[in-house]
Design a binder for these strands. Structure first.
Length: 268
DNA sequence: AAAGTACTCAACCGCAACGCC
DNA sequence: TGGCGTTGCGGTTGAGTACTT
């Protein structure tokens, strides 16, 4: 038997919220606070699923949310954080006051991903496509035995006949983008802890608890150039016996680098 | 002006984690 | 310790809007 639905979908309203429904949620939260969303529809007089109410509150109605467009600084930060930790939108959103994970995710998918593609940068690995192809060529030439590509930093190029609708990574001069899609693990890179030297630009995020440190100058390549130090080099002198070993090592290093943010994210 | 296409983003879905009993 | 309800999260969908032909 499957998991029962969170509510009876046939009896609850779905789709866009009306101003009246918003007002009910706001009134309820201002009177009772946030908690136990499954009871909210009944208590607030809404014919909605509790989950839907929670989503409406967290993504739209919360008073601390910003509804203006993303600033260039926020853009830059999203790109950097995505490069560092991948598509963990909630973690990224926590570094952007007033933004939700949904906001960040949508902005990435509609704007930033395309922006990187236009610049010839793979939005998954944040590497220039030319480098990816070069790396792949190097890896292929090194593979004397038909060993499967494994490990957190490897990329698998899979011949495919169809690219995602908007994925046209090669801006000019090649049609390789139509021949391959890039498949990478969700956590492709390891961040190295940045010494608090002049070579590091400290991105003050959130005015608060957690601050990411980025290496290099923010001026380079419009700030889009991969800036974070990666561990590809550092792991090259230790041969991993297995994918799991590599993940565990990665986990250890990330935890050391960003204990406040990532502490709960890498338990395998 | 109308039709077709592309884009945006709010909302939904399903799964995993969490917390309580 | 396992069951169950709730919450959090990332991926996906689709209605509304903007743009192009």
């Amino acid at each position: 038997m499957g998991k029962p639905p969170c509510c009876d979908k046939s009896n609850v309203k779905r789709g866009l919220w009306t101003a009246e429904e918003d007002a009910k949620i706001l009134a309820y939260v201002s009177n009772h606070g946030v908690g136990n969303w499954t009871l909210v529809p009944k208590k607030a007089g809404l014919n909605r699923c509790g989950k839907s109410c929670r989503l409406r509150w967290t993504n739209y109605l919360r008073p601390d949310l910003r509804h203006d467009s993303f600033t260039p600084q926020e853009e830059d930060l999203i790109i950097k954080l995505h490069q560092a930790i991948g598509s963990r939108w909630s973690v990224i959103a926590k570094q952007l006051p007033g933004r939700t994970d949904n906001d960040v995710k949508n902005y990435w998918n509609t704007k930033l991903r395309k922006k990187l593609l236009k610049m010839g940068i793979d939005p998954i690995t944040h590497k220039p496509f030319s480098q990816i192809l070069f790396d792949y060529g190097s890896i292929s030439s090194l593979r004397t035995t038909p060993k499967p590509l494994m490990g957190p930093f490897n990329k698998t190029l899979t011949p495919t006949t169809t690219m995602a609708k908007t994925q046209q990574p090669f801006s000019s001069g090649t049609n390789l983008g139509q021949q391959f899609q890039f498949q990478t693990p969700k956590k492709p890179y390891i961040l190295k802890e940045q010494p608090t030297s002049s070579s590091c630009s400290s991105s003050s995020i959130n005015g608060g608890e957690t601050v990411f440190h980025f290496a290099g100058s923010s001026e380079q390549s419009n700030g889009i150039e991969p800036i974070l130090q990666r561990c590809e080099g550092s792991s090259s002198d230790s041969s991993f016996d297995s994918f799991v070993d590599a993940l565990l090592e990665q986990d250890f290093e990330i935890k050391g680098s960003f204990p406040e943010i990532l502490d709960e994210c890498f338990d395998y």
